[in-house]
Design a binder for these strands. Structure first.
Lengths: 332, 332
DNA sequence: AATCGTTATAAAAGCGGTTTCATATCAGAT
DNA sequence: ATCTGATATGAAACCGCTTTTATAACGATT
C-alpha cells in the first residue's frame, strides 16, 4: 500500500485539496461537518502528510543540525540530549553531524545541512571559520556552543570557564593544599585557555608557584596519566592537582593509583566538566558545567531565531559550580 | 541573496532545466561544451541543489533515522559514532531520535521519520512492538540493534550475550574465585536475560551455587551499588561478582570501596559492555561487546536494504571478548 | 535514397503539499 | 430589497527538482 496523499484524502472526503490542507493546518475557514469528513478520510487512508513536500512548499523542515566534534566525548551526548529534548518538544528533529574535528567534514556538513534546508544549526567546533559561518547565517540561523567567537555578531553559549577554574583551585587551597599543579587542555581551545587563566588567577601569585607546575594534555585520559607522572616527577611534594577536564582528571587518578599515592590523603584531585556519569572510584570532585542547560539554552535561542523572534547576539555565559566528592575530601 | 535554483542556472547557461539536471546527476547525454557552461553557471550562482525538492521528486532523502533509548548511556554514543561514520561515507545523514524509553515517543518518532521520508531506520528499543515495525517495513527498511526480535523476519544485530557472560564467569573461576555473585539487568531486556543464562551455564551447577547469589538492577550505577550491598550482606564470603553491564559494575566497585573491601584482592569484579571510556580506578575488567562493529554492521546492512540488494533477514550475532584489566587481577 | 540507432536538447508532466484568488452562501444592517 | 462582511470551498499556481516524451541533427546501414 503506497502512502496516501492529500489528493487521495480530498477525493475520499469529496472536497478540494485546499480544504484538506486547511484542516491539516487548522487554518482558514472550514465547516464543522466538512472537517469531520476530512478527518475521517484521513484516518481511513492512514494519511500522513509528507514533510518533504511541505518544506518544499515553503514551510520549514522542522529540522536542525547539530555539529559536534566527537560524540564519544561524554560532554556532547549530554548536550545532545538537552538539545533533542527541547527540539522534540517543539516538533523539531535533530540531524547529528559528527565532524571528528575535521575541517573538511565540517565544510561538507554545512553544505549538506543547507541543501537539506534545515531551519537552524547548533555548532560546537574549535576549528570553524567565522567567515564561512557569517555567509551562512543570512540563510540559516546558527548558535555556537562550548567554544564562543566573541568578536562576531553571533550567539554563543558557554560556561564561565575562568571563574569555574578559580573556584576549583580555591577549593583545593581551602582543603589545605600548599602546592597545586595544573593539567591544562589543548592550547588552541579557548575554554582550556580560560581555565588555565583561572588557575593562575587563583594561585599564580602564591609564593610556591612556578610555571613547571603546569603540564599539558589534549583532554584525553591518557594525556592525564602522562601529565600526572610528569608533574609528580617534577614536584614530588605536590599535594593538589586541577585538571582541565574530567577525562584528564581520571587519567591523573589512574596514574596516582599506579604510583601507590593515596587520593585524597596525599594528593587531592579536581576535574572540570561534571559529565553526568560519575564513574571513578573514589568519586571525582569536579567543577560542573551546566551542560544540560547549555544545550537547552542553545536550542531555545535557536528556536527564537528560527521563529524570527529577537535574540541578542552575544556570548551567553553560564556559571559552573563546585561538586565536592571524594577526591578532595575524605568521607565521614 | 536567496539561494539559486536550477532554473536560475539554466537561464544563465542558456539551456533547459532538464539539461542542468542531467549535468547535476551525470546521467543522460550532455554535450561537452554545454556541460562546461552549466558547471560554470552553477559556480557563478553558488548553486546548491535542494535536497528537499530532490527527494520529493522521487529520489531518496539520503537520511536514516537512529532511534535509541538514551544517548547518555555510553553504549549508544559509540554505536551512533559507528553508524554516522558509515552513513557519512556513503553520503547519508543521521537523524537522532532519543526515545528515553517511552513507547509514546517511539511511536511519534516512527511517524515523523516516515513523514520525512527517511530511507531507513536503525532501532534500539526494548519496548518496540514488532507488529508496528512490520507495518512500516513495507515502506522503509529497518535494522534492529542490541535487542533482537528473533521470531520476526527482520534484521537484528547483537552480540552473543550468553557466551560472553559465560566467558566472564569462567575468568573469575580461573582467577580463583570460589563464590561468585551476579548482578543481573532488567527482567524484560533480552540481553540481560541472556547474560544471566550465561552466568548460570558457567556456575549454576557448582556446589556453592544458590539463587540468592543473584541480585537485580536496572543497568544504572546506583542499582549496582545497592545490589552489591545486598549481595555482600547475604554472602559475606563472596569473592567474585559478575555485573550485567559496566555501569552496574562501577556501582559495585563504589560500594566495595565504601565498605573498605579491596578489589581485586578480596573481591573480584567483572562487567559487561566494554564502553570506550575506561574511567574507573582500578580499571574495570569487562566483557567487551564489539560496539563499533555492531553499529557499523547495522548501517552497512541498512544500506544494502536501501539499495535493494539482498540481505538475509536474521539475527547477526557478534562475539564479545574478555578485556582483562585491574579489577580481577593484580598488576605486576 | 530511405531507414535506423546515437547523441543532444527542450518542453512539460509530475512529486505532495501550501497559498492565493475567485466564487458562493448567508446573516445582519440599511 | 440591497448591500456588506464573515464563512466556506474550489481551482490553479507554485515550491525546485527529476523524468518522460518529443524533436532534431548526424553518421552509418542497407
Amino acid at each position: 500500500m503506497a502512502l496516501a496523499t492529500i489528493r487521495d484524502v480530498s477525493k475520499l472526503a469529496g472536497v478540494s485539496v485546499a480544504t484538506v490542507s486547511r484542516v491539516l493546518n487548522r487554518k482558514g475557514y472550514v465547516g464543522e461537518k466538512t472537517e469531520q469528513n476530512v478527518l475521517a478520510a484521513m484516518k481511513a487512508l492512514k494519511f500522513r502528510p509528507d514533510h518533504t513536500a511541505r518544506s518544499l512548499a515553503g514551510k520549514g523542515s522542522s529540522t536542525v543540525g547539530l555539529m559536534i566534534p566527537d560524540i564519544l566525548n561524554p560532554f556532547f551526548p549530554e548536550v545532545a540530549r538537552a538539545i533533542e529534548d527541547v527540539a522534540s518538544a517543539s516538533g523539531f528533529n535533530v540531524m547529528l553531524c559528527n565532524t571528528v574535528g575535521s575541517m573538511d567534514k565540517e565544510r561538507r556538513y554545512l553544505d549538506m545541512l543547507a541543501s537539506k534546508r534545515v531551519d537552524g544549526i547548533i555548532i560546537a567546533s574549535y576549528t570553524i571559520q567565522p567567515e564561512r559561518l557569517l555567509d551562512f547565517m543570512d540563510d540559516i540561523p546558527v548558535v555556537l556552543i562550548d567554544n564562543p567567537l566573541p568578536d562576531y555578531p553571533l550567539i554563543s553559549i558557554a560556561c564561565n570557564n575562568r571563574d569555574g577554574a578559580a573556584l576549583a583551585v580555591r577549593h583545593l587551597l581551602e582543603e589545605g593544599c600548599v602546592k597545586i599543579g595544573h593539567i591544562r587542555g589543548p592550547l588552541q581551545v579557548t575554554a582550556a585557555h580560560e581555565r588555565s587563566l583561572g588557575y593562575e588567577e587563583a594561585c599564580g601569585s602564591a609564593p610556591w608557584f612556578v610555571p613547571s607546575l603546569i603540564a599539558q594534555g589534549n583532554f584525553h585520559i591518557e594525556d592525564g596519566q602522562r601529565a600526572m607522572l610528569e608533574l609528580i616527577e617534577r614536584h614530588p611534594d605536590l599535594d593538589g592537582v586541577f585538571a582541565g577536564n574530567d577525562l584528564m582528571a581520571i587519567g591523573a587518578l589512574q596514574a596516582l593509583y599506579k604510583l601507590g599515592i593515596q587520593v585524597p590523603e596525599q594528593v587531592k584531585v579536581i576535574g572540570f566538566d561534571g559529565v553526568a556519569l560519575n564513574m571513578s572510584v573514589p568519586a571525582l570532585t569536579t567543577v560542573a558545567q551546566p551542560i544540560y542547560s547549555i544545550g537547552a539554552l542553545a536550542m531555545e535561542l535557536l528556536l527564537r531565531l528560527i521563529r524570527g523572534e529577537s535574540a541578542e547576539r552575544k556570548v551567553y555565559e553560564l556559571d559552573a559550580k563546585l561538586l565536592i566528592r571524594e577526591t578532595t575530601r575524605k568521607l565521614r
